[in-house]
């Protein structure tokens, strides 16, 4: 399992693996929004939590269609499916690798972008906390979407249509935690619910993803 994780990480880091693309996209989004909305600090401070969270969702989405594509094309997914380790574990490792190469870097750069978007000082801690709790769910849910659209030639667009509605609860609780934190209100409820979604998704969705992969490999 660990070997699989390291292999996936190495693949993602290699040129063409898409590592860094998501980050660059996130940065561009944080630059474009003030250009579109206007430079008023108050307005930006108001929308910063939402923009940063929506940006995280979209950046996560970018690398999803490559999650299984390489392994599917060269047949190594068939090997993994018949390997002694359960496919559910393989899927979880894939999601973990996706999170380490996408969710984690996004969480780390988010405060910098928060400065650009004039996020209130009280919000920074909650931004990092909520992204840290929420982005694993994005990777796990995204893995499920990638597993569903595995065999499709133009799956990328469909993937976003399928995955984005599933991101709604994570987005709501994540962004609300930041909004409340920035306003100095209690954030325990949204953070707990966010953690609950992440835990639930990580525990249950790998089974659905593995089932979808088995169906696609049939």
């Amino acid at each position: 399992m660990t070997a699989l994780l390291i292999r996936d990480l190495r693949l993602a880091m290699r040129a063409g693996g898409g590592f860094g693309l998501g980050l660059a996209f996130y940065l561009i989004l944080a630059v474009l929004v003030p250009l579109g909305v206007g430079p008023e600090g108050d307005t930006l401070a108001l929308i910063a939590p939402g923009i940063l969270w929506v940006g995280a969702l979209l950046s996560c989405l970018l690398s999803l269609d490559r999650l299984f594509a390489l392994d599917y094309e060269d047949g190594s997914l068939d090997l993994l499916a018949t390997a002694p380790i359960p496919l559910e574990g393989v899927v979880t490792m894939k999601a973990l690798a996706h999170w380490i190469t996408t969710g984690l870097p996004l969480t780390l750069v988010a405060p910098v972008l928060g400065v650009l978007l004039n996020l209130p000082a009280a919000g920074f801690g909650w931004l990092v906390a909520s992204l840290l709790l929420g982005t694993p769910a994005l990777s796990v849910i995204g893995t499920f979407g990638a597993a569903l659209t595995l065999g499709l030639r133009r799956g990328g667009l469909l993937l976003s249509l399928l995955v984005l509605p599933l991101y709604v609860p994570t987005l709501v609780f994540g962004a609300q935690a930041v909004v409340r934190g920035a306003a100095g209100l209690g954030t325990a409820t949204p953070l707990l619910l966010l953690a609950g979604i992440t835990a639930g998704a990580a525990a249950l969705l790998p089974f659905a993803s593995a089932a979808a992969i088995r169906i696609n490999l049939r």
């Binding site: 609860p169 709501v172 409820t189 619910l193």
Partner: peptide, 8 residues
């Protein structure tokens, strides 16, 4: 989940 999230 979205239904409850949206309520919140």
């Amino acid at each position: 989940l979205s239904r409850y999230a949206v309520n919140f």
